[in-house]
Design a protein around this nucleic acid. Structure first.
Lengths: 204, 204, 204, 204
DNA sequence: AATGAATGAGCGTTCATTCAT
DNA sequence: AATGAATGAACGCTCATTCAT
């Protein structure tokens, strides 16, 4: 979130130091990557001293891990909630998941970038801790598609590949989407549900 | 595994400093990213001194740029050649492109990783120099899909999104594919041409 | 000898990192020249780590520039003050300038060496910033000599050459003078005012 | 001497490698100083490979020492020859020495710069070897002035200071003289003999 | 008479981190 | 709740020099 910066760019952020630092880290990691970002960059961006950063976070790696955890939980929570209000029709469930994902990629570009690219920069211990959640997210997709196939609603011969293709397509949005570029998130979600349903070979 | 090692496995690298360095850089960049790789890592991996690296390459950035250029040209050349031997049926042309891409992602994992992730670490001048080739590659896909749509062979309502989805699906392979994991490249290519044709809504 | 040491001779430098570093840089640059001095030399001499140096100064070049600026201002200020308390007799004014300069060369040997030799190692931007002050110092001498010639008090046919000769003679003192070598600064100043007055062909 | 470079700047020099290298070293040392010059700079300027440089000279320091030796001998030889053809009148002898020196500073600017600035970059052994010649040159001046004073032709009260002033004035010429700047070397020599004679307080 | 390939030490600089306050 | 001052390790890179040819 960079609202503060859009109003007073470069100005020290209002509000707590903790928030300012995570926000600055989010943006920096997204823009230049973990190793391309120095903690001085982050502190500068947060309008705080280097030491303030260490008051709130024990290390740069911890900052990344916290960020990744937050992002993953946030995304997974949204998926979960979106599916809860929906019946058991596989096409509808898949569409809901696509919609949530597209919306997330579009409205949380910074977070999407980090989630996509910084996984390999997590130290093993931190990566492990998140791996379970990642697998759960995968299962969310897999369960729906497998169910659709089992019921004969989806005709794709290789559900795992279909799932990967759907997810990859949604995830790639962050690489090219420009906010305010003429196409609304809702419209985009619509298009991608179409693509997803074709990938799984949905028989309407 | 470096090319040198593929030729004389286990033998100490003698001469061929330039190749040894490029190979080492390729592997290191792929594994840990540009900023996560130090030139000392590269030199060590190449079995050469730090200074030997600078005898052959003027800078770390130049090394990345040369690598990216080589990779991009190589991939684009394969695409080009694959299309040249094929008629003008959009489905066949699209399948050919998918096959080439899947095969490349599977057989050139290191290069695919670099091409996918290190674009943003190119200095503007180097990025610019490659941007044209990138656009040309995009056009390869776009022309085929647009043609298919124009002929009524492809029914997808949004050709650009279809293209992006197909490419994203193919590119993502490098993230999960494990060589020797039971599924052959040919079989994988087969599956992905299927996915691609569904994405563009091919009417057989 | 650093200023810090002049205040607490022999005491370990505590705090005052900035001063310790500037002092160390002054001495090292004077002894071995800008390019002959490494910042590790400076840090070692200051009794601080390499990084402490960068905490106080953004670069080696900046260190030189700051030093040069300080030295030039200091010397010019002394000249200015010396002339302010003196009437308009050219011989007296010239003598005052010679005295100040001789004294400076003798008592600030380190600074005199830097000012004399490191000009060419300033980056153009830094050199430019100091060029004005240099020209002003030159004008101090030129105005006096020109005035003396105009009034007929100085008979030298080429005032510019006379000025350069006087200044060169004074500046060269740093090359041979050894403090405690039997001749007092006051006596030396006396001798050099004599030389200067002969150079401008003063008609007593 | 940079005639070759003035004709084909940057082009490899004609003639023997040894000469090309010393010429390149002369110019580089004069422009940027010993420590500011790399042997790669020299080789590049000479249009030769790094290794060619080492074929002719065992080290960078040796190159400097050889250069200094050559320069010092050349200058001293000129002084010697100039005095040989002249009677024993102190004023005439002093004038001859000034003329030779002025001319040397004007026509051998590169060499004069090196002689003036690089003394401290000679390793002790090399410095020692040249110290004798330096002292001899000093004696040339001193003998004349002392003789003039003894004969009552020169009235300066401090012959050593007078000598240093004369030499300093002549040496400083290289710092400001621009060839083709309107004033001929001969005219300049004329002016500086005047200054020198006033410094020693010559009684015409 | 010269070169191409390589090296180890050192360069100026930046890194993540710590500590006393 | 935060800072200013400092550190040791590492960074990308250049240095003078060597060696086989």
């Amino acid at each position: 979130m960079s609202t503060a910066e859009e109003i007073h760019p470069g100005a020290p952020r209002r509000g707590g130091g903790r928030e300012a630092i995570t926000a600055a880290a989010r943006e920096s990691f997204a823009e230049r990557g973990y190793h391309g970002t120095s903690i001085r960059d982050i502190a500068r961006r947060a309008g705080l001293s280097l030491s303030a950063l260490y008051y709130w976070h024990p290390s740069k790696q911890h900052l990344l891990a916290a960020l990744m955890e937050e992002i993953t939980h946030d995304y997974f929570g949204r998926c979960d909630r979106a599916l809860r209000g929906i019946g058991d029709d596989p096409a509808e469930r898949l569409s809901a998941l696509v919609r949530v994902t597209v919306e997330y990629r579009v409205s949380r570009r910074v977070e999407s970038n980090i989630a996509a690219l910084e996984w390999r920069n997590l130290e093993p211990a931190n990566r492990e801790r998140l791996a379970g959640l990642r697998r759960a997210a995968t299962r969310l997709w897999a369960d729906i598609i497998d169910d659709g196939v089992a019921r004969g609603v989806f005709g794709c011969p290789h559900p795992d590949d279909a799932r990967r293709a759907v997810v990859a397509a949604c995830n790639a949005i962050v690489q090219w989407y420009e906010p305010g570029g003429g196409i609304t998130p809702a419209e985009l979600a619509e298009r991608y549900t179409g693509i997803a349903l074709r990938i799984v070979d949905h028989r309407g």
